[in-house]
Amino acid sequence: MATSAPPLGRRLDWQTVRVESTEPLGRRARLLKLGVTDWPGHLPGQHADVRLTADDGYEAQRSYSIASAAHEPGVSLAVEHVEGGEVSPYLTTEIRPGDAFELRGPIGGYFVWEAANGGPLYLCAGGSGIAPFKAVLEHRERFARGVPTTVLYAVRSPEHAMFAERINALATSDPALQIVWTYTRAAPKSWRGYARRVDAAMLRETAPRPDARPLIYVCGPTPFVELVASTLVELGYAPESIRTERFGPSGE
């Protein structure tokens, strides 16, 4: 059963993968579902490298979060469209089912969580930072239902949210999973939840208490991660219990 990553030290070879389908993820991102023939498995939270080769041999590489868990078919990558970027506009607007490119991975052995790590789990996502947590939540649903888990997800507006339906459905079916949304620009009418940027009060209200020793994962744009991680340290959470993944400015 492909629930775990390949042993470290295994050589990561490039392999050709085919796009099976794509779907929009919120307003600015796209989910690419890839058919893979020789994928070694991965842990929730890991990412993969994409290599595009132009017809004259020019190549470009980028890393993207894997949004699917290893027990699901194929590998799904979440790609956020970076305005003026080199690779992401191609992947979000140009690529179609049937197209092929190269992939290698999985990469990153630290920002990972699997059932054996237990909980409580506190996942803080900003924008497309939800992508690795989608893999965590799918893995948890399959192998670790009942692990106390809170997701704090900050997005500009409901239209910008990624995986909203699926995440809400997972939470509806498992009382141990709580999703807390905060809308930083535009909340739905009659919204009674958070409608501001993440701050100390919001973290205090939503995170398990420090003495519960939660495993904390923070993923999103650099300023979001810097703020959340530093504030959690100030609130008394052990720095070594906080794992971070910062996006961008990616330099695309």
Partner: peptide
């Protein structure tokens, strides 16, 4: 650079 066996990304120019 030996890129001969690689799939070509249709329409990809890159920067």
């Amino acid at each position: 650079m030996n890129n001969q066996n690689r799939p070509i990304a249709r329409g990809f120019r890159g920067r």
